[in-house]
Simulated assay, not measured.
Amino acid sequence: MFPAISIERFAELLGADIRLRGTGASVQAVVSDSRQALWIQPTAFLALQTQSGDGHQYALHAAQQGAVALVVAQNGTFDLPPELPGECSVLVVDDPWAALRRLAAHHRREMNGTLIAITGSNGKTTVKEYLYHLLGDARIARSPKSFNSQLGVPLSLLSAPVDAPGMILEVGVGASGDMALMAPWVRPNVGIFTHLGDAHAAGFSSGAQKAIEKAQLFTGADWVVVPAAESEIAAAISVPTRSWSWNTSLDADLMFRWEAGVLRWTDQSGEISGEASCPALSAVEAHNVASVLTCIFYLGWPWNPEGLSDVRSAGLRMERLPGVSGWTLLNDAYTSDLDALGWALESL
């Protein structure tokens, strides 16, 4: 939800023509699913066209559910029905997807806090949740669930209060060209590049191309956290953006060691150092924790070391559930690539 915008200003931000002006005065939220509760706050429905469906087919239903505005395409399949509720305005744009990005870009310009963007082949959602958990500040906004797609990123950004001291935003890409549609308006202050793996490999000609595509997100950022062991990631980060590297065995800007239930860290100069109790973690869990702590230390923000004791419970991944006959069920339904399967098996 964002600050209330008049229908006229909303249309201006979208680059829309007002085809029909209803009685609704303002908009505070946008959705693309007509099944959502549209009456809680003044909500606009975006008729998005995807490979699996056409939102114009659900526009009337959205209006009947309480939408105060319908955003439809000039060449779309929506005709003004006589039964359209009187409160609902109809706004016409060339491309509803581009209109959504324009609205998100406006909201990003209004935001005052630090935007931390996370990308990578794996670990985006877990790193986001770990970071939020260890910061322990309810004022920090974050992407819901794993909203990191061309739709999820702008909707996540629009959900953040403009006065939030910070936001943690995960950003994913599936093919070459995807990041170019988002990076110019996401404009993160800092970021985390989690890992480069096989997820969405079919959309790229090589691992290096995928790294370069994802790294576009950090163009203009102050710095980005990278794993020192993955040289393709560091090579993809464009100057003047600074890379802060971490590792557990090789030289890096920040080094981590897990020993007998204690996590220790130190940087090259010794200015950043410390230790905290931490349970034994799998390799992928340790990878994610190291990425998060590197980000926190270079931000210089306060954090809760005691949160390491239950950091596993914060992630939406690798959920351990008791099964029958002493079996353990590992719920990792948020992903389906082979890297993640290997890490899941290793953690058991």
Score class of each variant (00 low, 15 high):
residue 5 I to W: 15
residue 5 I to F: 13
residue 14 L to Q: 05
residue 20 L to D: 03
residue 22 G to D: 04
residue 26 S to H: 15
residue 27 V to E: 06
residue 27 V to Y: 09
residue 39 W to V: 14
residue 42 P to F: 08
residue 43 T to I: 04
residue 45 F to P: 09
residue 46 L to Q: 04
residue 62 A to Y: 06
residue 70 L to Q: 02
residue 70 L to D: 02
residue 79 D to I: 07
residue 84 L to H: 05
residue 86 G to Q: 15
residue 94 D to I: 07
residue 109 R to N: 09
residue 110 E to S: 13
residue 112 N to M: 12
residue 116 I to H: 11
residue 119 T to V: 08
residue 121 S to H: 10
residue 123 G to T: 05
residue 126 T to I: 10
residue 130 Y to A: 02
residue 130 Y to H: 13
residue 133 H to Y: 08
residue 135 L to S: 04
residue 139 R to Q: 15
residue 154 P to N: 04
residue 159 S to V: 00
residue 163 D to N: 14
residue 165 P to I: 02
residue 166 G to K: 06
residue 173 V to R: 00
residue 181 L to N: 06
residue 182 M to R: 09
residue 184 P to A: 02
residue 191 G to A: 05
residue 192 I to L: 04
residue 193 F to G: 00
residue 195 H to L: 11
residue 198 D to H: 09
residue 201 A to Q: 14
residue 203 G to V: 07
residue 204 F to Y: 15
residue 205 S to V: 11
residue 206 S to C: 06
residue 211 A to R: 05
residue 211 A to G: 13
residue 221 A to K: 08
residue 223 W to N: 00
residue 225 V to M: 06
residue 229 A to C: 06
residue 230 E to A: 04
residue 230 E to D: 15
residue 231 S to G: 01
residue 235 A to R: 14
residue 239 V to H: 08
residue 244 W to P: 00
residue 247 N to G: 15
residue 249 S to L: 03
residue 257 R to S: 14
residue 272 I to Y: 10
residue 282 S to T: 03
residue 286 A to K: 05
residue 289 V to E: 03
residue 291 S to V: 00
residue 299 L to H: 03
residue 311 V to P: 06
residue 313 S to E: 14
residue 315 G to V: 07
residue 322 P to D: 12
residue 324 V to C: 08
residue 326 G to F: 02
residue 328 T to I: 13
residue 331 N to E: 07
residue 336 S to W: 01
